[in-house]
Design a protein around this nucleic acid. Structure first.
Lengths: 343, 343
DNA sequence: TTGTAAGCGTTATCAA
DNA sequence: TTGATAACGCTTACAA
């Protein structure tokens, strides 16, 4: 393991010149530079970044905190984060927390001990009070919600979900089931708000029995949809708070010998890659995963550089994607009381 | 940012005692330890790991090189790697290479520059000669194949794929289509070998026209299956080299108004989570993603510790999972020439 | 443009 | 059990 001193010796210059050749080549004469480069080549010198980082008090790495890397939407976002980070000379430390507070704290500690320069958090912020106050280091919420404090990037979940439900209503649906995430999850809260807004604007009363709680995982979509299908007056459409639950819901609905969308329309959220290939392909909301990742890195790096943000909150656009899992409500006339005419 | 010197000053001891309190608490008297801990608490001291790592010439981090983190099987493996690494006090640096050699080299450089202690490679080794020789540092192939040189962990792809095709043959299928990965991919090579072995043992001639090349991605499964469906004498079963292509294939087959498995049985490989929820659920091979990840970390850490391995190659067991995407070949009598009787 | 030398925060060696 | 001090490899004033 050769070091800068040996290179200097071989090149016949000082260590400072070697260091400068590598870090500030413009401050070194061509002659010296040449000698140094040759010496480096000769002894196959590689600078010890552990030393360099220590010296510069920078780790050049970011922690990405994610509840579950196996969630395909998160995987997409992380792929983009990694891409952009590498472009900027930073490494990504993957912190898959499996929703464990302890594991999350372990990763936070990496920043406190200087092994990472900042954190991108993909888990939404559950309650206001708990962990936010102590984050006195570069910390950024991605996949944030309306209630997220501090620097964050998000799409307008309320508007996006309202968009979906508006569409279902426009197809004549009035009994619209909802498969949510866990109750307290901020995404659940925002999207539920969108659901209620759409209903209320259309003059459709909110019906608690049409709400089934899931937890953003396929199997929970199966269970929730089973419940809704067994309802005496079952919904003609089911809006799911993510694609995975929608995929589970479709399977469950089929298992009741019902057709999607013939008997029940289904919608998702996220537009994961399988959504194009389910049967039927899923009507859903597409979040700009690539932009979210790269913008997150850019903003976090600015935070790391000590810049103060002009705007803490960045709201990105979403796409509403109509596929084959939704259709006109066959029962539109029978189960609607104010029907389609303007009120 | 307090440092060890300040803690020492406050505690009224030397820096050595502070250091020892943290790293070798057994070598410090209770009295000193107490004073030190109080001082640490008082100034909210956090050891600078950048310095510690520099001093100990260890990064305590591993690079995980993956062609695409958005591949759900890889995501599963990485989740397990991260888990085990954290347990052992190591961080995971995520290197999503998107099959770019340059990006892979950038990550290899992290090891050369001491920012990482070793590498777990999830990409299979394409050709023998190229990059292997220069890996004179802890380097481990996961998801390896028969031809992988050096330390590696794998399942027996040949046997596993033969298992699948054997099963299809046992259902009476004799025209068995195959959707492969890219030609040179070692997984393609091993699995093709298993396909051929099964055919040959059953006395079924190998038919080049039944082979369609994909690239382990959903859309490529769609294309490949379209090709196979348009064949004048189309196959009664299609074995796909991974689940994603199988999911694409199922969609394509349905789009030709054919039934799965009624008209064409379909199989996958990997058992990603969606495979249980497709329509129909997929018959496939399950690889032990969790074990693969944790064993990989354990072995790599031993390599990092300088141990020499008793065995370079670790072959892990797989599961064959029968679901609803495969059924008895309806055309068994018409298109088989030696039928079911022993030859 | 170049060299000398101090210093980053920690650990470990050696004496006490 | 403790303390003084020399490393570790690099960067960067400061001086030449």
């Amino acid at each position: 393991m050769s070091n800068i001193r040996e290179v200097a010796r071989i090149a016949g210059v000082s260590v400072a010149t070697v260091s400068r050749t590598l870090s500030h080549p413009d401050k070194v004469s061509e002659a010296s530079k040449k000698k140094v480069m040759e010496a480096i080549e000769q002894v196959k010198y590689r600078p010890n970044m552990l030393a360099r980082n220590f010296r510069s008090a920078r780790a050049y790495s970011l922690v990405v905190l994610v509840p579950d890397i196996a969630n395909p939407f998160f995987a997409l976002v992380i792929r983009s984060i990694e891409q952009q980070a590498q472009k900027k000379g930073y490494s990504v430390l993957l912190g898959d927390t499996q929703d464990s507070h302890a594991r999350e704290q372990d990763y936070i500690r990496l920043v406190e001990t200087r092994l990472a320069d900042g954190v991108i958090q993909l888990r939404p912020q559950w309650d206001q009070t708990s962990d936010q106050q102590s984050m006195n280091f570069p910390y950024l919420h991605l996949c944030a919600t309306e209630s997220t404090p501090g620097p964050c990037i998000r799409v307008d979940n309320v508007a996006a979900f309202k968009n979906i439900v508006d569409y279902l209503i426009s197809l004549g649906h009035r009994r619209i089931g909802l498969i949510t995430g866990l109750k307290g999850n901020p995404h659940t809260i925002d999207r539920l708000k969108g659901y209620k807004q759409a209903l209320s604007e259309a003059g459709i009363p909110f019906d608690e029995t049409l709400i089934a709680e899931g937890e953003f995982l396929i199997w929970s979509g199966v269970n929730a949809a089973n419940t809704l299908c067994k309802l005496p007056n079952r919904p003609t459409a089911i809006a799911c708070m993510n694609d995975e639950m929608a995929i589970g819901a479709i399977q469950a609905i089929k298992s009741h010998d019902l057709k999607v969308p013939g008997d029940i329309s289904v919608t998702g959220f996220d537009d994961i890659s399988y959504s194009r290939y389910c049967d039927p392909p899923l009507t859903t909301i597409s979040q700009p995963a690539d932009d979210m990742g790269s913008i997150a890195v850019d903003i976090l790096l600015r935070l790391i550089e000590g810049e103060t943000l002009d705007e803490e909150e960045h709201v990105l656009p979403y796409d509403f994607i109509v596929r084959k899992s939704t259709s006109v409500c066959k029962a539109a006339d029978t189960n609607s009381d104010i029907s389609q005419e303007p009120n």
